[in-house]
């Protein structure tokens, strides 16, 4: 059992849990994830690692409520326990000196892109970060990501805060204005990852996307999370979650992530409605 030592609701539907796990706190690296299971009846789902504190021995996850398990997780409180918290899983994000790197966080991803931006910056990259949310009330941690980056742009879909528009649109603007970008690292909803990859493709800018697939074990045993990258089948859990966005078969990715939509609703109605 793993204790929740703090819980915060950041913005509507986006929550933070700080979990006591000293060993994991020592080992986590940017881009990695954990698998969690709430209780005996629970399913195993991956959550991105948002932060870790080696001295205090805890690991933070930030997640969006979009299914039965994440809804249930959002109901837990400080002092509660979850049954399983396993990690750090996945290959850490490659942190090297690339030059100018644009880190794109869509939706919940602002919550967990910060360690990556920080690490890239400390390697000597110039880091421009983009936060993209639907509307002003969903914007969070602007200050935190700003301090992990050289430059931060915030955009909202409805224009209620920052620039009006989308992350791919801003990225396109930058590229078309002739701004040199050496690499894009994007985290967030699949359609945004795909759109960013399409924007950079004609410019030949390497675009690393962090894929959130359906997983069971998270250690390469089952193949539930398989994705096709450059025509080769990969397991997002052990070969990823970072992949070259230009090589990802997006149609397959979206289709496989939709396998259990019906069951997701059944589980929600049974336990949480």
């Amino acid at each position: 059992m793993y204790k929740i030592i703090s819980k915060r609701d950041l913005v509507p539907k986006i929550h933070l849990l700080k979990i006591a796990e000293p060993t994991l706190a020592k080992k986590s690296q940017p881009g990695q994830f954990v698998l969690i299971r709430i209780d005996e009846e629970g399913e195993r789902i991956p959550l991105n690692i948002a932060d870790w504190d080696e001295n205090e021995g805890n690991v933070t996850v930030v997640f969006f409520e979009n299914g039965a398990t994440t809804h249930k997780l959002a109901l837990l409180k400080e002092g509660d326990f979850i049954a399983n918290f396993v990690g750090p899983l996945g290959v850490p994000t490659r942190i090297e000196k690339f030059g100018h790197v644009v880190c794109i966080a869509g939706g919940v991803a602002t919550g967990f892109i910060i360690p990556m931006a920080k690490a890239l910056k400390s390697k000597g990259n110039k880091v421009t970060s983009i936060i993209w949310e639907k509307t002003e009330k969903m914007v969070f941690w602007e200050d935190r990501l700003a301090s992990a980056s050289d430059k931060l742009i915030v955009a909202t879909e409805d224009g209620s805060y920052g620039r009006k528009g989308s992350a791919p649109m801003l990225l396109k603007e930058m590229l078309e204005s002739g701004e040199r970008i050496d690499q894009v690292n994007a985290m967030g909803p699949g359609p945004m990852l795909k759109a960013c990859s399409e924007v950079t493709r004609p410019f030949g800018v390497k675009t690393i996307v962090s894929l959130h697939s359906i997983m069971v074990d998270g250690i390469g045993m089952c193949g539930s999370c398989r994705v096709s990258v450059g025509g080769v089948t990969k397991f997002a859990c052990v070969d990823g979650p970072d992949f070259d966005g230009h090589q990802v078969d997006w149609g397959l990715f979206f289709a496989r992530n939709a396998i259990y939509i019906k069951e997701e609703k059944i589980a929600f109605d049974k336990h949480l409605a």
């Binding site: 399913e43 195993r44 069971v216 045993m221 089952c222 589980a267």
Partner: peptide, 17 residues
């Protein structure tokens, strides 16, 4: 694994589909 470890045969009592 879905059936044996995660008990999907008892879905939706168990969450794994």
């Amino acid at each position: 694994t879905r059936v044996n470890l995660m008990k999907a045969y008892r879905f939706p009592d168990y969450y794994t589909p």
